[in-house]
Computed example of a mutant assay.
Amino acid sequence: MYEQRGFRQWVSRLLSLGLPKEQLLGVSENKYSAFHQEAWIRNLLKEAQRNRLHLHVSLEEVPFFILDTETTGFYPQLGDEIIAIAAAKTMNGTIQNFYFSLIKPGRMIPHEITKLTGITDKDVESAPRLAEEITKLLAFLENGVIVGYHIGHDLVFINHFLWTQYRTKLTHRYFEMKSILEMLYGKGAFPTLDDALHYYSIYCEKRHTADGDVRAMTELWGYLLQELRQNGIETLHDLYSALSLC
C-alpha cells in the first residue's frame, strides 16, 4: 500500500514537472521500486562518505566492521557471485552487533565451493538475492571502517555488484589485516588467515564460513589493536602513516 501510494506520488511529481504522460506509460511499479532502491543505496554511500571519521580519532573509538564473504569463485566479472556475507560491528575489539545472510546466486554452487564452505544449493534456495539484501548490508556498515583478511576479494565482489547495478561503489575506509601483520612482523609473515589464527592460538569453529571467519577475525583484530597501541599507533592517522612506510 505504501509503495503504491509512493509510486502514484512519484508519477504525479514527474507530470507536474512537464514530463509527457506517454513517456510514463511503460514505467511499472517494479521499475519505480528499482529507482527507489537505487536512490536509497546512493544516499547510504554518500552519507558514509560525508560521515567519515576524523583521522585523529583514537582507534579505541572507531567502529570497525569485520567483513567476510563466501563466493562461487574468484572472478565476479566472469559470473562468480556472493553466496554468504557476514559482518561484525566492533568497538575496541568487542562485538557490538552482528550481521549475517546467505545469498541466493544466479548460478549453481560449484562442488568444490560446497566442499569448502558447506553451503549447498538447497541452503540458499530460500535465501534473498543480493539485490534484495544489499541495502541491509550497507545500512549495517554505515559510518565505520571495514577490516578483513584478504579484504580485497570481498570488496571486489561487493563493488562489482554495486557498479553493475547502480554505477556506484563503497565509499568506506578499509584496512587489510594481512598488511597490518606484515607491518608488525615483516613481509610474508602471515600469508593466510590460518597462519595468523594459528600464531595467536585462535580457534575458528566454522572455518571457511562467512560468520565463522568473521568471529575468528574479530578475535584476531582485538589482538592487533593491543599490539598497535604497544607500538605507539593510537589513531587512524598513525595507522595510515605506519602502513605507508612498509
Rank of each mutant, 00 (worst) to 15 (best):
K187F: 08
A87D: 00
I41Y: 10
G118C: 07
K104P: 05
L55S: 04
L155C: 13
V11N: 11
L155D: 12
F190W: 01
V156K: 15
F98C: 02
I134V: 07
G222S: 03
L14H: 06
R173F: 01
D80Q: 02
S12V: 14
R167A: 13
P20K: 09
C204K: 15
L19S: 12
D80G: 05
H237S: 15
S244C: 02
F64R: 02
D121Y: 00
V156Y: 13
S241V: 08
N43F: 02
I103D: 06
L15C: 00
H160C: 07
Q37Y: 03
R5I: 15
H36P: 07
Y223R: 07
E22N: 14
L162R: 09
T171P: 11
D195C: 07
Y199P: 12
E70G: 09
L137W: 08
M183S: 00
H150Y: 09
S179L: 00
A84N: 12
L19D: 00
I95Q: 02
Y2W: 14
E133Q: 14
R173E: 06
Y166M: 06
E176L: 00
G212V: 06
K206A: 08
Q37A: 03
F35W: 14
R207D: 05
Q4H: 08
H172I: 01
L17H: 12
D238Y: 04
E234G: 06
F7H: 08
S126L: 14
F157P: 08
K178E: 05
L24M: 11
T69A: 03
Q4L: 09
P63Q: 01
R207V: 11
K136S: 15
I119K: 06
M91G: 05
Q9E: 15
E47F: 14
I103V: 01
I146L: 07
S58F: 09
T171K: 13
G79E: 04
F190K: 00
T72Y: 05
G93W: 08
M1I: 12
L44R: 10
P63A: 04
V156R: 15
E29Y: 03
C246T: 15
T209L: 03
P110I: 05
D213G: 09
V214R: 04
I95L: 05
N231E: 11
D213K: 05
F98R: 08
G18F: 04
L141G: 06
M91P: 03
S33W: 09
V156A: 14
G6R: 15
S28N: 08
T171N: 11
T209K: 10
P76Y: 09
K169G: 13
D194I: 12
L78R: 13
L197N: 10
D211F: 10
E219V: 11
Q230F: 14
D80A: 07
L138W: 07
T209M: 06
S101E: 13
P110T: 04
A39F: 12
L53G: 03
M91T: 07
T72E: 06
R173L: 09
Q226L: 14
F65S: 05
F175E: 08
G118N: 08
N51G: 10
H54D: 12
T72Q: 00
E205G: 13
H54F: 06
H153K: 13
A127G: 01
F175I: 02
L170P: 04
R50E: 13
Q4D: 09
N43C: 10
